[in-house]
Write a protein that binds this DNA or RNA. Structure first.
Length: 416
RNA sequence: GGAGGGGUUCCCGAGUGGCCAAAGGGAACAGACUGUAAAUCUGUCGGCGAAGCCUUCGGAGGUUCGAAUCCUCCCCCCUCCA
């Protein structure tokens, strides 16, 4: 904010940067100009689903855009959809979500604040809950709201259409989700809403509903969706391909390193916060063979990790990564687990335990069968020594390092 | 309300009386390879100290030596007609 104030045109350009779509730049320019003359910041809405309160790198793309708007002096409203959470956002899912209980919703909403503060200035962020107005609606009100749109319009939404065509059930209440979300915009008098491209339909409906309520429609800004660590599907909790911003430095670093090379560019552009020119340079060097892709990915991992765990964390993550995956050594920190050892009559001398039993009891396998298979497949080692005999009895009377597969480690010792 | 089609192991999906713990694909996990990855290849993929046995094919009963498969009732989903 110390820099010279941007002209409205420049401000629009800055806001549009990195966006997938901005509807529409002209309206935004208008709003900014009017806002300036009235000394009124724009009200920017961002909705969060309380059923999955972990903020991951995909959400962070929107949050950084919000941060930018916040720094431009606008008013951010972080809306927790505690009411709509009971419906479940149908966006992008193939089946109806089961509703959350009141308690779950509240508990989840609770965890947002700390996470958001990693990116936004929470002191200057308004937090709102849509139950505040949604729960007050009468059936009559709901009917009126529903008249804003039509079934045909609803079925235009590609996930609904897809489900409909595939004969997958769509519950009627799922149609209420976009309605409720639109109503949120009405109640908040939102000037602008931000979210992933998958939210476009909902955002557009909100515009319609605002018009119906005599308001000026909100500006829509969608940001590209970040792919998950698999490099294919969009990052989401249900896909299990996400990187949480609260994960440890080591995990963030490692997970970024595990993305396919093909996903590097979009991670660089969407998740790293590095200047575009620098990204261009790195990518060009990789392409020309001047930089090894691994080096480029390490830089990426460093950049992303440092956003959430600081420089120091990024360094630690990198060291640990090199140590464990490149040198094949044990991690510097491993949980110490005390294991109950069966009494001597069954296991022979004290301190000895069946390897399969051991793998199970530290939680590295859910069943004996799975543990047995891991052993047979050569995934299990003790102090770096592979154990592939599924009948082996091992001595853990003193502390030893158990490793299963590439990334599961623990220090184990017999209890007592 | 009527007619028809469906509900199978994490997901999709084959299976219409024993050869079915159930094909095939995906996901996942492990091993090899590598750059740590991706891709590829190989293997595993309900439970049990593994021999055999137990539990599983929407639910409950029944027929049968034997049922995911046949019968009865119930629940749920989809399509068309009203």
């Amino acid at each position: 904010m110390t820099e010279k104030r941007l002209s409205p045109q420049e401000e629009v350009a800055r806001i549009a940067k990195g966006a997938d779509e901005l509807i529409s730049p002209e309206e935004l320019l208008n709003k900014i100009e009017r806002g300036r003359s009235e000394k009124r910041p724009l009200r920017i809405k961002y909705g969060a689903d309380p059923s999955a309160p972990d903020i991951h790198l995909g959400h962070a793309v929107s949050l950084f855009k919000l941060k930018q708007l916040q720094d431009l002096g606008h008013h951010i409203i972080f809306l927790i959809g505690d009411f709509t959470g009971m419906i479940g956002d149908p966006s992008g899912r193939s089946k109806t979500r089961s509703p959350l209980s009141r308690e779950e919703v509240e508990k989840n909403a609770e965890t947002y604040r700390a996470q958001v503060s990693m990116i936004l200035d929470v002191e200057r962020t308004e937090v709102a809950y849509n139950s505040e107005w949604c729960s007050k609606l009468s059936f009559e009100d709901v009917i009126r709201l529903c008249s804003s749109t039509t079934v045909a319009r609803m079925l235009e939404r590609d996930d609904f259409l897809m489900r409909y065509q595939n004969e997958v059930p769509i519950s009627l209440h799922e149609f209420l989700y976009p309605i409720a979300q639109g109503y949120d915009s009405v109640c908040l008098k939102a000037d602008m809403e931000i979210g992933g491209t998958d939210q476009k339909f909902n955002f557009l409906l909100a515009r319609q509903m605002q018009r119906d309520h005599g308001q000026e429609p909100q500006i829509i800004l969608t940001v590209p969706l970040l792919v998950g660590t698999d490099g294919e599907q969009k990052m989401s909790k249900s896909q299990g391909n996400y990187i949480c911003i609260t994960e440890s430095a080591v995990d963030i670093f490692g997970k970024v390193m595990s993305i396919p090379d093909s996903a590097m560019e979009s991670y660089y552009r969407l998740a790293s916060r590095l200047p575009g020119a620098e990204v261009d340079k790195i990518l060009a060097e990789v392409k020309s063979g001047k930089m090894h892709p691994m080096e480029a990915k390490k830089r990426l991992a460093r950049a992303i990790t440092s956003l959430y765990a600081g420089e120091e964390g990024a360094r630690r993550g990198e060291e640990e990564f090199a140590r464990v995956f490149q040198e094949g050594e044990d991690p510097s920190a491993m949980p110490l687990i005390h294991v109950d050892v069966p009494p001597p009559p069954k296991a022979g001398r004290g301190g000895r335990i069946w390897i399969v039993e051991l793998v199970c009891s530290v939680g590295f396998a859910e069943s004996k069968g799975k543990a047995r298979r891991l052993v047979e497949q050569g995934a299990v080692s003790l102090d770096g020594e592979r154990i592939s005999d599924a009948d082996a009895q091992v001595d853990i009377s003193r502390e030893r390092v158990l490793r299963v597969g590439k990334r599961r480690f623990a220090r184990v010792v017999a209890r007592g």
